[in-house]
């Protein structure tokens, strides 16, 4: 199986939890165990849109109990004999091998996953800066020789890229230090925020310079937050920025 595997370095490994929970897209070749008409394949694939039940396969890293997963889209692309090419956008934790098996059962003839390529992990897509292992080792060696930082920027992107699909909240310089120490975000610290935030949504907290400060859970909606002049707005769940980058601006109460 090939395709997008966002790899976080050093401090940035803290953002992988955001990537694990994000949606994925795959291109898949499914092998049918009998010849089936294209119309029928299209019709059956259509039934797998939306919320589906799925039991993780035998070789899985999670408990094998029936669970629901959302299929955002499942587009038939083409057939070649018994091979069916399709593209699927799905929730994190959807097993495509199992999806193929289940489509085969629904068709009545059986099917298995022949080939799989991941074409999206949240904000990471194929046509924006995708690099191979070979590129990584070549460019890193070039950088070591020339010390030209542009070479690094060609294959490494800032960890903030990983958070692009999350609702964003921008905060004052004076609030950054406290959040880095694990404090929850209070209303007065907020400068701007995204629309459509709902209570319990995962959100990303940024400085005005666009640096990620923390992954948090919103407690209120965008509309409510805009009206608030005090109180906690988002609970800090994972601090991403090291302490000390921004100064400590709060007074310690005794």
């Amino acid at each position: 199986m090939t395709g997008i595997l966002p790899t976080a370095l050093e401090e940035a490994t803290k953002v992988v939890q955001a990537l694990l929970l994000t949606g994925k897209e795959y291109i898949c070749v499914m092998k049918l165990h009998a010849q089936v008409s294209e119309d029928r394949i299209r019709a059956v694939l259509g039934e797998f849109h939306g919320a589906i039940y799925q039991r993780p396969p035998i070789r899985a890293s999670v408990k094998r109990r029936l669970r629901t997963r959302k299929i955002y889209y499942l587009n038939f692309l083409e057939t070649d004999g018994r091979n069916v090419l399709f593209k699927v956008g799905c929730e994190a934790g959807t097993y495509i091998r199992k999806l193929c098996y289940d489509v085969g059962e629904a068709l009545g003839c059986g099917a298995h996953m022949q080939e799989l390529r991941r074409t999206r992990v949240g904000p990471f897509v194929e046509d924006e800066g995708l690099v191979t292992l070979h590129d990584v080792s070549y460019m890193f060696a070039q950088w070591q020789e020339t010390k030209d930082e542009n070479l690094l920027r060609k294959f490494i992107c800032p960890m903030e890229k990983s958070l692009e699909l999350l609702p964003q909240i921008y905060i004052r310089d004076s609030a950054v230090g406290a959040v880095c120490h694990g404090a929850h975000l209070a209303a007065p610290g907020i400068l701007s925020l995204d629309t459509k935030i709902k209570p319990n949504d995962a959100v990303a907290i940024f400085t005005q310079k666009g640096e990620a400060v923390a992954l948090s859970k919103a407690l209120e909606s965008t509309e409510k937050i805009l009206e608030m002049d005090h109180g906690i707005v988002a609970k800090t769940q994972r601090v991403l920025m090291p302490r000390g980058v921004y100064p400590k601006m709060w007074r310690s109460g005794l």
Binding site: P6, L9, L133, C157, P158, M159
Partner: peptide, 20 residues
Amino acid sequence: KPDERPFPDFIKFGVINLDK
């Protein structure tokens, strides 16, 4: 700004969009 992080922080706070 994330794009202007000086070395070596640029690597330490970096992600590679890797083709497995």
